[in-house]
């Protein structure tokens, strides 16, 4: 993966597959430390699965027996002196509070820290791919405060207009770009 934003896209896809209805992605940068939290309210994982997800030879996919999403993310973080930690509560353990949280820490001044890359594209790709799921995205750094909540957008659009309509996706993309001072 050339950019961390691609890792984030990849990891968030796991939340989609876990049946989440809400996925929160938050990026916080302070004192050369970037913390990325991806939290979902999906089905969660058992303790056994949780122990195996960092193994590249474990995967949920059926087309092949190798799963590199989490190992690549872990590598990207650890090569900067950072870390990836995963916590999860299964639906059968707690019917209300279930879900998975993946927290990654990157030391951005480290020479091996990959660039964050195009987060606007990652957020738009996620919404386009799962227009029925709600996404809450925040990115805070000195001089930067980006936020997007699809629940607010959905409230304006009503039930008839899907989030993945071209015009809506364009609005979302431009809104994010504006907040990133790209326009």
């Amino acid at each position: 993966m050339k950019e961390l934003s691609l890792n984030i896209l990849d990891i968030a896809e796991n939340s989609v597959r876990a049946g989440a209805t809400l996925i929160e992605i938050s990026l916080t940068e302070q004192d050369k430390v970037l913390t990325i939290v991806i939290r979902d309210n999906g089905c969660g994982m058992s303790r056994e699965t949780l122990e195996r997800v960092e193994n590249p030879f474990y995967t949920t996919r059926t087309t092949r027996s190798v799963g590199l999403g989490i190992p690549l993310y872990k590598l990207a973080a650890e090569q900067t002196g950072g870390s990836v930690t995963i916590s999860s509560i299964q639906e059968c353990e707690d019917a209300e509070q279930h879900g998975t949280t993946v927290t990654a820490v990157f030391h951005t001044a480290h020479i091996d820290c990959a660039p964050l890359g195009d987060m606007v594209s990652t957020v738009c790709t996620l919404i386009h791919g799962s227009p029925r799921i709600d996404f809450v995205y925040t990115h805070t750094a000195p001089g930067l405060a980006v936020s997007l909540d699809t629940r607010e957008i959905r409230a304006v659009l009503g039930e008839e207009i899907p989030l993945d309509s071209f015009e809506v996706m364009q609005w979302i993309q431009e809104s994010l770009k504006e907040q990133y001072h790209q326009i």
């Binding site: 691609l6 896209l9 990849d10 896809e13 590199l68 690549l72 195009d118 594209s121 990652t122 790709t125």
Partner: peptide, 10 residues
Amino acid sequence: ATCGIAAGAR
């Protein structure tokens, strides 16, 4: 998937 994303699918 991971393979597509890494190869430039986005």
